[in-house]
Write a protein that binds this DNA or RNA. Sequence first.
DNA 1: TCTATTGTGGATAATGAGTATCCATGTTAT
DNA 2: ATAACATGGATACTCATTATCCACAATAGA
Lengths: 162, 162
Amino acid sequence: MQFSIGVEYAFHSLFYMVDLPEHKTIGIKDIAKLHGITVTYLSKIFSKLRKAGIVRSIAGVNGGYELAKGAENISFWDIIEAIEGTSRLFHCIEIRKKNIFVNDPSIFTDKCPCLIKVVIQEAEDLMRNQLKMKSLRWLHDQVHKDFSVEKRKAIADWLKDV
Amino acid sequence: MQFSIGVEYAFHSLFYMVDLPEHKTIGIKDIAKLHGITVTYLSKIFSKLRKAGIVRSIAGVNGGYELAKGAENISFWDIIEAIEGTSRLFHCIEIRKKNIFVNDPSIFTDKCPCLIKVVIQEAEDLMRNQLKMKSLRWLHDQVHKDFSVEKRKAIADWLKDV
DNA sequence: TCTATTGTGGATAATGAGTATCCATGTTAT
DNA sequence: ATAACATGGATACTCATTATCCACAATAGA
């Protein structure tokens, strides 16, 4: 039970896009090369990010992607939910409906929703809310603080040429 | 990205075992019939619960399963971890290692562990801790509070005969 | 207008985890 | 001894994820 690899690709792709100069886009081709994966595969991931309103696409020559809103308004959970979808960790499929006590409805009248589901979803919400509090901007600033001058320059140069 | 169905089978199986009289065991066969699944499949789930120290097995005639400790000492998370394992939601496979900046090690010297992983794991820990606070006993008492006298009797009678 | 560049989406295959069953084996009360 | 019970190996089926190829649409610049 893990997040898909697409979440990691999304995080690391978006991380570099924070430094993109205003009105400059970056092509899928360049990010795919950066990660060593194919263009068409990464495009599926960016398709999800686009539908979630995290990035914006510009078609045609010199087109590409840019962040659809400020990095401070893109949370960790926004990115995860864009890739993983909105489904819950515990999806009660009501196996109780099949159990032997069901034959007598007067005896088997559980309250719905199932309490197990409620408890697990409440715990899940704690996690989600924590992830909603950390933004892509925060991640970017924390990480860049520890980058050397040379590394920041290397990234900036690379972004200039793509 | 969801918990496996085994988690639900485990919860609903253990729920009935709380009412089991002292030193009385229940056979896999009866629980499997209750849920409408095969004995061998449910035995895989109970094998995990046994290895996690949640239930204890007695082989041979009149054998079966019983809780290995008090229901108040079995948390929601204990049950989930027994079935799902201990792996984390976000397992950073370090795609950065493949990226183009790696060719120059003096430039690419990220601190490990990856900050993305740290943040997600901290959020996950909030969820885990919340699930560690709710016990099987608590679930049992909350649900039984709302059960009718007839239903409680039906369950008790069923447990007496298995 | 033509063309090279860039994103979009359908079709498809490979992989791997989860779901599920059957059967052989070991243990134990009667 | 035997019937009842758990255990573990082998196997197959299903399904989401991972991944690629290709045809198509959009667009900037020659």
